[in-house]
Design a binder for these strands. Structure first.
Lengths: 211, 211
DNA sequence: CGCGTAGTTGAACTCCATCAATGTCAGTGG
DNA sequence: CCACTGACATTGATGGAGTTCAACTACGCG
C-alpha cells in the first residue's frame, strides 16, 4: 500500500488515539483537518432518533474533516490504535494553495472522504447481503497492509452492520457463509485470511454463486 | 434557492444539453470540470454485469467531474434541458488556486459531488422504502426552484429506483401511498405538489406513521 | 394510428429484520 | 485463580417488507 502524506509531520504534532477515542465530533466547527498516519478511523453519525450509522472507514493517508461544510457532518472515532496530524483549517488551505499551482497530488488526497462516501453507496446498492459483505471485505482488504492474504481485522460486526445498513445478525451469517464456502477463514475475530480471492470477487459481483 | 457560480460565464462558452444527452462519460479522462447553470443532471454508472445505478442528481451551481480521480467515475447525463460551462482541468485548478488564498467559497462549491454521494448514503440507509421515498422527495424539492410548493418533477421512477437501489415497482407503490396519505399530489407525472410537508418530514424520519 | 417506453397493479415468493436465547471472550474485582 | 460482568457474536424461529414476474394501462412520439 503506497501512502502519500501531504502534511509535514515535523511541523505538526503527531498525535495518537486509542480505540474508541474521538478525533472530532459531528456538529463541531470545521476548523481542523486530520490526516491519518496509521490505524483505522470510522466516521459515525447519530440521527435524531438515535440511529447509528457508520458513514465510512478511513485509513493511513486519508484526510478527513475537510472544511467543505461549516461543521463536521460526522464524528471521527479511532477503531484501532491510530496516529494522525491535526492541522488548522487556514494552514491547510495554504498547503492546498501551493498544490493547486503545481500538480494534482493534494487534490487526490482530499478525495479520501468523497471516495469513502462513494464506495459506501456502491456497497449499499448491492442486491443481496452476501455480495455486499464480499465486496466490503475486498474494499478494506485493499486498504489494510496485508502481509500475504492475512490481515488484522479489528472491525466489529456492529460497525460493519451500521456501515452497510444491515443487521448485525445478518453480518454474522454472511461471514459464516463465506467461511463455509471457503472463501475466507477467521481463526480469530481479529484475523481475516482470504482463502479464495477470486471466489470473493465473483460473489461480490453477483450473489449467484450461492450454491 | 441561492446559487453561487464560480466560473466566469463570459469567458467560457455556455453550453446546452437536451434530456438524455451526455456531458461526460464514465471512464474518460478527467480533463474538464462542469459547472451547471440550470437543469438537472444525473450521474450514472453501469457495472460490469449491466447493473445501472444513479449515483447522484446534480443541480444549478454544482460542479461535477472534479479531477479527484484519474477518470470520471460516472457518466453525467442531462435529465431535463440543462445549461452548463465546461472548463479545462488546468484553468479550473488555477481558479481554485485563487480561491484557496482568500476564502472558502470555491471549497464549498467543490463539495457538490461529495454532498451528493453522502446524501445518497443517508437515503439508502433508511430502513423502509416509504421513509426513503419521503426523504428523497424532500432532498430534491429543496434543490428545485419551487414556486410555492409546486415543482417540476421530471425524474423518471426508474431513475429514482436506480438511485435508491430499490425496484421501480416499489417506487411507484411508495408514491401512491404518499398520495393516499395526502402528503403529496401529482396531477401529472411531471408535477409534484407537496400538500403536507410536515407529514413528509415525519415519514422521512421514521416510517412509523404508516397508518 | 401504432409503437415503445414508462408506469401501474396483483400474486407469489424470498430474503432479511426482528426477537429471543445462548455462547464467547476480555476485563475486573473478589 | 475464579466468579462476575458487559459487550459482542452466534444461532434459530418467525413474520413482514420488498423483489420478482407477469399482465395490463397510460402516455408520448414517429
Amino acid at each position: 500500500v503506497q501512502v502519500h502524506f501531504s502534511l509535514n509531520q515535523s511541523c505538526s504534532l503527531l498525535r495518537n488515539a486509542h480505540p474508541g477515542q474521538t478525533l472530532f465530533r459531528q456538529g463541531d466547527d470545521c476548523d481542523h483537518v486530520f490526516e491519518l498516519y496509521s490505524g483505522i478511523v470510522r466516521g459515525v453519525t447519530i440521527s435524531e432518533e438515535g440511529q447509528r450509522k457508520v458513514v465510512g472507514f478511513f485509513f493511513a493517508g486519508d484526510q478527513i474533516g475537510l472544511p467543505l461544510s461549516r461543521s463536521y457532518r460526522f464524528s471521527a472515532e479511532a477503531v484501532t490504535e491510530a496516529s494522525y496530524v491535526r492541522q488548522a483549517e487556514e494552514s491547510w488551505r495554504l498547503a492546498l494553495f501551493d498544490s493547486c499551482s503545481s500538480d494534482r497530488n493534494m487534490l487526490r488526497l482530499i478525495s479520501a472522504e468523497q471516495d469513502a462516501f462513494y464506495r459506501r453507496g456502491e456497497l449499499m446498492s448491492c442486491r443481496n447481503v452476501l455480495s455486499q459483505t464480499a465486496a466490503f471485505l475486498l474494499s478494506i482488504i485493499d486498504r489494510l497492509a496485508g502481509q500475504g492474504n492475512r490481515v488484522d481485522f479489528r472491525l466489529s460486526q456492529i460497525d460493519i452492520a451500521d456501515y452497510l445498513a444491515i443487521s448485525p445478525e445478518t453480518v454474522c451469517r454472511s461471514l459464516r457463509r463465506l467461511r463455509e464456502m471457503h472463501a475466507i477463514e477467521m481463526p480469530t475475530h481479529s484475523i481475516l485470511v482470504v482463502q479464495d480471492r477470486e471466489m470473493l470477487e465473483t460473489i461480490a459481483q453477483d450473489g449467484l454463486a450461492a450454491g
